[in-house]
Simulated assay, not measured.
Amino acid sequence: MDTPTGPVTLLPSASSAPDAVSPATGGDEAVIRQVGAVIRRHQLTSLADTCLDYLVDNADGATVNVDVHEKHDTVCGGDPETSPRLFSFKLDRASGQLTTDALDLADGDFQPIQ
């Protein structure tokens, strides 16, 4: 997996993000809402929304990379010193196309998902 080279924002779960802008043209919160909705629609994890963290990298402006991690704390359980990556998403801002490696974790290939 590529390591983000630009500014990275760690955002809380999708359910706590405000409703403001569209994912393709807006800020990190809109992208997180879209990714969170796709995670639920496709049942990509059984973890509650509050037990997911999102690392957002939109340094190049054209593509937004989102790594979805397990949140470990007293509510979610797990070792608070770790935050395992579950899967990643990429949003192409020009086309609005969302891709993920969650559908093919073995090879890590990104595939379109809606």
Score class of each variant (00 low, 15 high):
Gly96Tyr: 09
Asp67Met: 03
Pro80His: 06
Leu105Pro: 09
Ala14Asn: 11
Ile39Asp: 04
Ala48Lys: 14
Ala102Thr: 00
Val21Ala: 15
Asp57Ala: 12
Thr25Gln: 08
Ser15Pro: 04
Asp92Val: 09
Ala30Val: 12
Asp2Leu: 11
Ala48Trp: 06
Gly108Cys: 03
Pro18Gly: 10
Ala94His: 05
Ala20Tyr: 11
Pro12Val: 05
Phe110Lys: 03
Arg41Gln: 12
Gln97Ser: 05
Met1Pro: 09
Leu86Thr: 07
Gln97Asp: 05
Asp92Asn: 14
Leu103Asp: 00
Gln97Tyr: 00
Asp28Phe: 02
Ile39Gly: 04
Gly6Gln: 00
Gln97His: 01
Gly77Tyr: 02
Ala24Asp: 10
Ala94Val: 04
Thr9Val: 14
Thr63Leu: 05
Ala24Thr: 02
Gln114Pro: 06
His42Leu: 11
His69Arg: 14
Thr63Ser: 08
Leu105Gly: 02
Val56Gly: 11
Phe89Ala: 04
Phe89Val: 07
Leu103Phe: 08
His72Arg: 11
Ala62Trp: 00
Tyr54Lys: 01
Ala17Phe: 01
Leu91Lys: 05
Asp73Ser: 13
Gln114Asn: 13
Thr99Asn: 01
Asp53Trp: 12
Thr9Asn: 11
Arg41Pro: 01
Pro84Arg: 02
Thr74Pro: 07
Pro12Lys: 09
Gly77Met: 08
Ser16Trp: 08
